[in-house]
Design a protein around this nucleic acid. Structure first.
Lengths: 224, 224
DNA sequence: CGTACGCTTGAACTACTTCAACGTCAGTGG
DNA sequence: CCACTGACGTTGAAGTAGTTCAAGCGTACG
């Protein structure tokens, strides 16, 4: 647990309140816990390890993943700045979590959070909302996985565009391999599908991790 | 909302406490709400309808589903006696819910539940646990969807065996079509896969909805 | 400069789908 | 009681989307 967390530990100072503080835990978490830096590909926690902490991405990006017995890897989710992850039922993490890029992560004890929630109904409700939102996200992920390759990739791009920036140019923090494991495809299929979306003028690839969405309407239509 | 709910409405009386009352909402819900009968294929609520109520299966079985624009249907989950469903973030249901078989369903107002949770931290925590468990289930469902047909069907059978009965003979409440839409396969593939599992002596089919698990070890191995 | 890694592209293969026919069972009405 | 009907399930054969295997390209980095 946190064994691979590199470098120094900085005490958290309160910062300007975040936009949606009332609807997520950002506001409540700000005054709590420590902020740790993780470098690219560092494990934040491992599958099966005790789930002592809750995490919030401050900068960078994180993936949660699970390795199946035959070596296949499933990525459960990507987490971007402000997102909270690691809050799970049961004493052990179901997935492992790794930093996709260099990242700073706020860490808060789950027991602290639950104890505070027992006192403060509002925080309790925020905790519930957080998990309910995660449930919704997971359900959307399931929905993704029954679609065909084009639809999956289109959904993924739209999701990332929505979460990363309001703009039409998406700067992806993750590799093709991560994308493939998230979408339940191979890297080759992801690559080919992106190439095909480009030939049909729905996107423009400006370097492998920089993608411009040229025709959101058409991409939306692929969302089924 | 509830427009297709048939027949009479019976007031709920307290019953003997359920086994896992401390860990789910069964205990808390027992004293609340109404119990309604639904007949096979009745809609309990529709996608997009206001999410006013939370539901608990008393008898029978329920599926939640979503129809995509092209007509494909995804089944989000199956709910069996004691299971709670319909508790969602936001004002509207993301999925619709239908009775798979004749069923009796307990109905409780969400607002009531949240109001009580604001007073009673223990109930609040139960509410969170309920959603966290649902999240875990949804994540396992996503995991299913990246596997091959054999693995999906094997997982499904084991899940149903676990939830329906401790025995090795499973009496499925749902059709092949429901199973297919849950597993992201076609009915033909489900049928063929079951046939194949039978020829390899992992299961025996005794009528299409009655399945005997003969070799759990081998089925488990397919769980990857 | 060269090695390594991430990404793309091509060609062959395979698992699943699609389409179509047939079988089975329960309910209905003659 | 049996024949008809329609929903549900199985089975076969052809088609296809995505995988697998393999080679080549570009960029980053020691």
């Amino acid at each position: 647990m946190l064994s691979q967390a590199p470098v120094h530990v900085s005490e958290t100072r309160p910062r300007a309140s975040l936009a949606c503080a009332r609807h997520d835990l950002s506001g409540s978490l700000e005054l709590m816990g420590l902020t740790l830096p993780f470098s690219r590909n560092c494990e934040i926690y491992g599958e099966g390890e005790p789930a002592e902490y809750v995490y919030q991405v401050i900068t960078g990006a994180v993936r949660t993943s699970k390795i199946l017995t035959d070596g296949r890897r499933q990525i459960g989710a990507f987490y971007l700045p402000n997102d909270v992850f690691g809050l799970e039922l049961g004493a052990e993490h179901d997935f492992s979590a790794e930093a996709i890029s260099n990242a700073t992560i706020r860490v808060v004890k789950q027991s602290t959070l639950h104890a505070l929630a027992a006192e403060d109904a509002d925080l309790g409700h925020q905790l519930w909302e957080l998990t309910a939102r995660e449930l919704k996200r997971s359900q959307e992920h399931s929905l993704l996985l029954i679609k065909n390759a084009q639809e999956r990739v289109a959904c993924f791009l739209l999701e990332m565009a929505r979460r990363l920036a309001p703009a039409d140019v998406v700067q992806l923090p993750m590799s093709r391999h991560d994308i493939a494991d998230y979408l339940g495809l191979t890297i080759e299929t992801v690559s080919r599908t992106l190439a095909h979306l480009e030939t049909t003028s729905l996107i423009v690839l400006c370097g492998s991790r920089r993608i411009q969405l040229c025709n959101r309407t058409a991409l939306d239509r692929l969302n089924a």
